[in-house]
Structure formats: C-alpha cells, structure tokens
C-alpha cells in the first residue's frame, strides 16, 4: 500500500482529482454532440423558464397592487334631501380632517347622468318621477391611513356625520385582484411542480439512452472491477451539467423576455402617470432557478442510473 501511494499525494487527493476529472470529462462528452446537448438543454430551459417567468410577472403585479392599496376610497352617500350648500360645507370641513387628503362632491344630478351613461337604461330612467340617487362625497384617505383598522375607524367616524346616510369603503376590487393573484400563485406552483417532473423525466430519459449506448463499456468496467459508484459518477455529473446549463439558459430566456416586455409596460405605466418599472429576477428567484435546475438534473439522472445500471451485468 505504501508503495502505491508514493508520490501520489494520498488517497483523498486522488479521490478528489478523480471527481474533478469526471466532472470535466462529462462536460467534454456533452460538447462532443453539441446539437443534441443543446436541444435537451433547451427543453429543460423552457420547462424551467415558464414558471419562473410567470412568477416574476405575478410579483410585479403584486407590487402594482400594493401601490393601489392607498387608492382605497370611501364613498359617503348623503341623505337624499341634503341641500347642495350643506353637502359642500361638509366636504369643506372634511378636507380639514388630518386623515383625509381629498373630497370630491358628486351631486344627485351628476350621479344620475353618470348612471344613465354607464347603465344604458336611459329611457327607463326617464319614467322615474324623481331622482332616486343621493348626492355622494368621495373621500380620499391620507396615505398614512393604509392599514385596514385605521381605515375602518375613519369610516365609522364619517358614518356618524348627521347628513351621511351610508359610508362605504371601496376596497373590494383591490381585494378581488389580490385573490386573483393568490390563485395565480397557486397556479404557478402547480405548473412548476408539473414542469419539474418533466425536467426530471427529460434528464432521466437522456441518461437512460446514454447508458444504453455505453452498455459495452459498462460491462467491461464491471468485469475489471469497477464499482457501481464508479460507473454511476459520469452519468450523475452529466445530469448535473444538464441541470445547471438548463437553469442558465432559462435565466437568459426569462431576462430577455422581461427586457422585451419592459418597453411597452413602461410606456403603459407612463400613460397612467405611474413610475412603475417592470422588475427583473431578484437574487432569491435566480438562486431558486439555478439551484432547482441543478437538483432536478441530478435527481433525474440518479433515478435513471438507479433503474438501468443494475440491469447491465456481464455474461
């Protein structure tokens, strides 16, 4: 034993060296058939890019929505017999309120005109003897009043005003959008799970074909004393490379898609006077994508190797 180790720098050194060699050997094998490597990598990348891209878009949408939280309005429906001067007086008083930044007055006539325009019931409304709609004050809470409890307290305070018949917080549409985003997130999770399985199957099948192609070599290595671990190693590294290359390609696909989208999105945001900018992939998303790709590649090849190597025995 001592003799075999002389000048070799020890067992551990050899072991690590062997791993490093297999690591680059398997990459070299992949580069020998660039077309098929590229195609397999592209399939993996597309499967990884789809849920990643949707995730990034949803995150952006969520950002937009959280900006709109502050746009919550309170509609004060006044008693129907409130006179315009009283309504305007109340509006003026409310503008002084520290939790309120703006109040808009909509008279009963304006409300009727708008309803006529939006509903299309024009003629039917003519049949009404008097305007059934009350005048309305639309109250804009200050940005500081974003949390639901504070908003509710403000609503209760406004409801106590003598001329206010009904006070209503108009946040429902924001909440509905939030719910939709939550559904979207679940959908992305399901899609990501399915496509993760697809990535494993693609890698697994590629490795299976590799194993079948190298059947003779595997038999010979077994005949001269190669362990299962030794035979497994290059295939596992190949799965590793597919995973990491697929992840990198997916990263480029998502980033370039976002780049293509960012122009139109930013000009759309400009139309709404919004300073919103389409965000790219953050560090966590990038890490998950690359780590996930690597793990799926390893797992796929590990499954294929476990299933198919045992069946190959010398005879």
């Amino acid at each position: 034993m001592a003799e075999t180790r002389r000048g070799d720098g020890g067992w551990l050194h050899n072991y690590l060296l062997r791993h490093a060699q297999t690591f680059f050997y398997s990459l070299g094998q992949l580069s020998r058939s660039p077309m098929s490597t590229l195609m397999t990598t592209a399939v993996i990348a597309i499967a990884l890019a789809m849920p990643t891209g949707l995730h990034v878009l949803l995150k952006n949408l969520q950002g937009v929505l959280s900006g709109w939280d502050s746009a919550a309005q309170i509609s004060l429906f006044l008693e129907r017999d409130t006179r315009e001067t009283a309504a305007l007086g109340l509006a003026e008083r409310l503008r002084q309120h520290p939790a309120i930044i703006g109040v808009e007055y909509i008279s009963a006539e304006q409300a009727m005109a708008e309803f006529r325009r939006l509903s299309g019931f024009g003629d039917a409304l003519d049949a009404l003897e008097e305007n059934p709609l009350p005048p309305v004050l639309v109250v804009q809470p200050a940005l500081g009043e974003q949390d639901p409890a504070a908003l509710q307290a403000l609503v209760d305070e406004l409801r106590a005003e003598a001329t206010v018949d009904l006070a209503q917080l108009d946040m429902e549409w924001v909440e509905r959008l939030y719910a939709l985003v939550e559904i979207g997130k679940r959908g992305v999770m399901i899609l990501a799970t399915l496509l993760a399985i697809a990535v494993m199957l693609v890698v697994g099948n590629t490795i299976r074909l590799m194993i079948l192609n190298r059947r003779d070599e595997i038999v010979i290595i077994k005949l001269i004393g190669g362990t299962d671990a030794f035979i497994r190693r290059p295939f596992l590294y190949t799965g590793f490379w597919y995973g990491i290359l697929g992840g990198l390609l997916a990263f480029m696909m998502v980033e370039s898609s976002l780049l293509v989208l960012s122009g139109p999105v930013n000009s759309l945001a400009g139309l709404y006077n919004s300073s919103f900018r389409l965000g790219g992939m953050d560090l966590a998303t990038t890490g998950t994508l690359l780590g996930g790709g690597l793990l799926l590649g390893l797992l796929g090849s590990w499954l294929a190797v476990g299933r198919h190597l045992r069946a190959i025995e010398p005879s």
Partner: peptide
Amino acid sequence: ALPLIIAGHGAQE
C-alpha cells in the same frame, strides 16, 4: 490504464 483508474491510483503511478 482503466483498472488502475478504477482502483484510484494517482496519475504518476
């Protein structure tokens, strides 16, 4: 060289 590599010998050996 294959049997030696399988057995984990160093490059010089």
